[in-house]
């Protein structure tokens, strides 16, 4: 596939830092979850974060979302310290977190509804994402009747519908079957290219990260630090068969497995003591 210059846009249109973390630390009681995360995310950048499980990826996302406060260091959005959650950041949780008492449609329109958007307009905007996420026909279903994959799609549609500047996605494709996942990945990429949002996506799939993101950030095991920050210099749309993508995948996989090995052997040593 040739690189259509218009579609390479987000990478070149980069301007100023959107989210900046300087020496961010997070403790839960005596547990140090995050030691020193320093990272700068540009406006309209698509960044993937990857790391061993339990290393603090979700925690980092919650800090950006403003649900939790850093125990140390600085975390800014548009140059201002993050004080709490806000509609400028949309979150898709790993465990979906739908409102069980609202239908699919009402879950998705809730954000607009809360912001005072008229019902017809809210529904119109929601229906677009219901279509794109393949939820048509399930508008009036309650979440308890949906499969895990469908719940995840509702969560994605809900965050996209109120059009936040920053999308924070916590393993957003984890519960999807391969086919739906590929559709959703394509849609998310199109969205990002058209709307020029800033996207922070947590994933455990190196392929997914390399395929979608501008940059892949690798976190160490707990307490986490940034151990690699790899720019994926391949124009969009990307082709899985592109050999340079494989080189990136191999590079990141190597870093990640070295980190996991280190953590495991450390754990074993502790176990032996």
């Amino acid at each position: 596939m040739s690189a259509d210059p218009a579609k390479v846009l987000p990478m070149n249109a980069r301007s100023k830092p959107k989210i900046v973390a300087k020496g961010v630390q997070k403790n839960f009681g005596s547990v140090v979850a995050m030691e020193d995360v320093t990272l700068s995310i540009q406006e309209r950048e698509f960044i993937a974060i990857i790391g061993p499980s339990g290393c603090g990826k979700s925690t980092f996302l919650y800090l950006i979302a403003g649900f939790e406060k850093p125990s140390g260091g600085e975390l800014t959005l548009n140059g201002k310290a993050i004080r709490g959650p806000g509609p400028d950041r949309g979150v898709v949780f790993q465990e979906f977190v739908l409102f069980p008492w609202l239908t699919v449609l009402r879950n998705i329109t809730l954000g607009l509804d809360i912001q005072g958007v008229k019902r017809e307009e809210a529904e119109e905007r929601a229906l677009k994402w219901i279509r794109l996420t393949g939820l048509s026909g399930f508008e009036n279903a309650y979440p308890s009747t949906l499969s895990g994959g469908m719940k995840q799609r509702v969560a994605i549609a809900r965050a996209l519908t109120y059009e936040p500047e920053v999308l924070l996605l916590d393993e957003p494709f984890g519960a999807l079957d391969v086919q739906t996942k590929n559709y959703m990945i394509k849609d998310l990429q199109n969205l990002w290219q058209e709307a020029n949002r800033t996207i922070v996506m947590i994933t455990h799939s190196v392929t997914e990260a390399v395929h979608m993101a501008d940059r892949v950030v690798v976190l160490s095991s707990r307490p986490s630090r940034v151990i690699a920050d790899v720019r994926i210099d391949v124009p969009h749309p990307r082709d899985r068969r592109n050999p340079s993508m494989h080189r990136y995948e191999d590079e990141i996989t190597a870093i990640l497995s070295a980190e996991v090995d280190k953590a495991m052997s450390l754990e074993r040593q502790i176990g032996l003591l």
């Binding site: 919650y62 959650p85 806000g86 509609p87 949309g90 949780f93 977190v97």
Partner: peptide
Amino acid sequence: NVKLFWVARSMGASRLQ
């Protein structure tokens, strides 16, 4: 589930909402 509050607050919901 505390995350239900989180979702609502990230949509900009007021205390009354």
